[in-house]
Design a protein around this nucleic acid. Structure first.
Lengths: 143, 143
DNA sequence: CCTTGATCTAAAGTTGACTTTAGAAATTAC
DNA sequence: GTAATTTCTAAAGTCAACTTTAGATCAAGG
């Protein structure tokens, strides 16, 4: 009668059904159950998923997103001010990531013809100020 | 007598001993063994490690780095022309990554005051042309 | 010679974000 | 009413890049 099935939600968001269930374990969505034990979702869940998906595009980890949502009523979507707060934080981080990549690019330009490949003298290899693509997993973006 | 121990190499590169052993399984280094079965490395191994570490800073995966090294003699370090070829490819990719992040930033600017969070209308959520931070693991950078 | 300390191997664990699998029960379509 | 979908759960698997663990052996300093 009321509510979207998990399949409906998957079609609307483009997420896999399994991903939506996984998000539930992280507290992103909070479906109710129908008589047969199947999940039913409301519009707030759709918005919460949208919020999570967009925040992920910005590089925020699921854990951080979930932490933001902890402060929200379970059956409410994030508000405009929630979004403002987070997106403003993101703006700063995004600038930093861009600056790092540009630094890397500039150094690479000076290095393409060099080929010294020495850890001592190569400007490219500077552990202190190059943070981009450090390796496995996404970095924490919200403190 | 001859050759560096794995500990020496670790100190010179800043890598963990376990990481160097791991790299060996990927064919990055090829130590010989001494009488007691311990690994002994040459200068070429140090350079191969440097090459790998610098390439990683550029966002190239270990697998891709190993694939590049397959074409090299085992006991030879990558040459200037090897580095040129790879670094030139990287330059292109780096530009693309920067452009994507800048696009994201511009859209975020237009979105900070908005808060619509709609998958249909939010410019931020455009699966087709935003590739940055797609999620788990590093992207393939060399084809 | 003896005691630290370094190295050895193989296997399992870590993290993030999910997917896959298997077998059972509910729902929908005809 | 029955067949075809969907959904259910819990547990295990995946990928990348390593690290940790355990128990054994090797090397080096005094």
């Amino acid at each position: 009668m009321s509510g979207l099935t998990i399949g409906d939600l998957a079609k609307r968001t483009g997420l896999a059904v399994s991903a939506i269930r996984f998000y539930e374990t992280h507290g992103i969505v909070h479906p109710v159950r129908n008589a047969g034990g199947h999940r039913r979702y409301g519009a707030h869940d759709l918005r919460r998923l949208s919020f999570a998906m967009i925040a992920q595009k910005l590089g925020i980890s699921l854990t951080d997103i979930a932490n933001q949502m902890i402060h929200l009523p379970i059956h409410k979507a994030p508000s405009k001010s929630d979004w403002s707060r987070i997106s403003t934080e993101m703006r700063t981080d995004l600038d930093a990531r861009i600056a790092q990549l540009e630094l890397l690019r500039d150094r690479l330009d000076g290095c393409i013809g060099c080929g010294c490949l020495s850890l001592d003298s190569c400007a490219l290899y500077n552990p202190d100020d190059i943070r981009a693509n450090e390796g496995t997993g996404p970095r924490a973006l919200l403190p």
